[in-house]
């Protein structure tokens, strides 16, 4: 009986993007809930920040914007699109991530499709998706012994976190700690990272620069984080 821990480059790429889209589903939903809360009793300018940061036209009514952001499959920033893209990758990785791990993506997808079918405006109804995403990451930690596979998933997760944290002006400490996690992934499997980009990004990861940094600084960081992996 011959076993191997090898995976193809295509699977590595899918693992990375599964990690990104699973994390984007989680974070997008988290942020959507946060800004939906502001929308209850704050000025439009407060909650429109969410849409502006994702480059969404803010001219629509707030109800329409929130509904589209939840259920519009044609929108590349919607939660339903995030879970579809996560599923596109996960369904091709069953044998690597195990059916139990895949099931959390499937559960999320089924729930979001049901809610979309009902045009359910209650964002709280999507709370189980947050729970499933957390269970998804728990299942990866628990069920996948192959460190190579976990590393690709986690690299995708951290790249996505950094991207979203920068876009939404998270405190430097949070961005830095995720960056440090990403550097562990680099140390585990250096060959799939662009070392020039790693060095440039490391040089920019300073609190003073982050606090003073304007659009150009953030744009540069976003550019680096999105080109750091070279699978």
């Amino acid at each position: 009986m011959t076993y191997t821990s090898t995976i193809s480059a295509v699977k590595a790429n899918r693992l990375f993007w599964l990690g990104r889209y699973a994390e984007r589903t989680y974070l997008n939903l988290h942020l959507l809930r946060k800004y939906f809360d502001l929308h209850i009793d704050e000025d439009e300018g407060e909650y429109d920040v969410y849409f502006e940061k994702l480059g969404i036209d803010t001219a629509e009514s707030s109800e329409s914007k929130f509904m589209r952001q939840m259920y519009d499959r044609s929108s590349c920033t919607s939660v339903i699109n995030d879970i579809e893209r996560a599923n596109d990758n996960a369904i091709l990785l069953r044998e690597e991530i195990q059916s139990e791990t895949l099931s959390y993506i499937q559960l999320s997808r089924s729930l979001i499709h049901t809610l979309a079918g009902e045009c359910n405006p209650n964002i709280t109804a999507m709370q189980p998706v947050t729970d499933y995403m957390l269970a998804f990451w728990g299942s990866i930690a628990e069920r996948i012994p192959n460190g190579l596979i976990r590393n690709f998933l986690e690299a995708g997760r951290y790249v996505e976190k950094i991207d979203m944290y920068i876009r939404f002006d998270y405190p430097f400490g949070k961005v830095r700690s995720v960056f440090d996690n990403l550097m562990h992934c680099v140390a585990n499997d250096p060959a799939v990272f662009n070392h020039e980009v790693v060095q440039k990004m490391s040089a920019l990861m300073r609190e003073d620069l982050y606090l003073d940094g304007g659009a150009h600084y953030k744009g540069t960081l976003l550019c680096y984080v999105n080109s750091i992996v070279v699978i």
Binding site: T4, I7, S8, A9, E95, A191, V192
Partner: peptide, 22 residues
């Protein structure tokens, strides 16, 4: 067992190989 897609397998000198990362 490994799930292989077209393109993952190649034949060289009459032997079949699975192409992994790198």
């Amino acid at each position: 067992m490994l799930l292989a897609y077209p393109g993952d397998l190649t034949v060289e000198d009459g032997m079949v190989y699975y192409t992994g990362l790198y």
